[in-house]
Design a protein around this nucleic acid. Sequence first.
DNA 1: TGTAATGATACCATATTTGTATCATTTGTC
DNA 2: GACAAATGATACAAATATGGTATCATTACA
Lengths: 131, 131
Amino acid sequence: MKLITRDTDYAVRALTYIANHKDKTISVSELVEALRIPRPFLRKILQILNKKRILKSLKGQGGGFNLAITPDKIFIADLMEIFQGPLKINECIFKKRICPGRNLCILKMKIDTIEDYVIKQLRSISLEVLL
Amino acid sequence: MKLITRDTDYAVRALTYIANHKDKTISVSELVEALRIPRPFLRKILQILNKKRILKSLKGQGGGFNLAITPDKIFIADLMEIFQGPLKINECIFKKRICPGRNLCILKMKIDTIEDYVIKQLRSISLEVLL
DNA sequence: TGTAATGATACCATATTTGTATCATTTGTC
DNA sequence: GACAAATGATACAAATATGGTATCATTACA
């Protein structure tokens, strides 16, 4: 059961590193060196974060990445949504079918309650909290 | 993000059906008919539940399954453990590595807190509650 | 003894996750 | 301007997990 996947995890690591060196533009090479994350995979992740306006990139010699927004505005929940899709803990099993009975509806309700709590928590964890 | 996988879901459905007909021995055929679950897959699931002493089986003509324990002693968390492995929401990403910094430890602690809540909730949902 | 049931087990298909490879584009430096 | 160092875009591939099949053995009732 994976709440946080590898790419989200890598994103957190990269972002915390970048946040901890906020005066400097950080290249992929430096991140690979520091975090030991497979280079092409990390590049893909950073490119996504750039597109999502969480990082901004500088091309060319001496280029690399900086935070596009302050760490208190970046939440774990955001990163999870970016890399793992919508925050639905219970990726609904009942989707393509007629819900086959009240009993499972009760279960669904209970799972939904749990889900609400989890999402609320995830939305409260900012990058700043982790620094 | 899937909290409950298909096999756990099918197990819940089968068990609720069996629980709702507790005087009768329920065959795979009847369950397939009632629940529209692929037969060989359902069989596998029922066999596992039998091994785990949640169902008891009767072989031969007129055979099938009955609950081995009362519905108030069967919890969603149990079924999830059977079909999805240990209840670790955060199937630890830090496992095979040296934890690379305090920041991620903080994240881990926060996730652990969420996890404790979720597991506690799941352990409180019995089959009886769903009937 | 035949048949209707489950037990055990090996296999297969598909989707997701994780990671790779390659070429195009931009930009600083000589 | 040419070169080199960086990211952008994108297609591909390996590994794993999930969902499902197939088959033969075993049991037990009629």
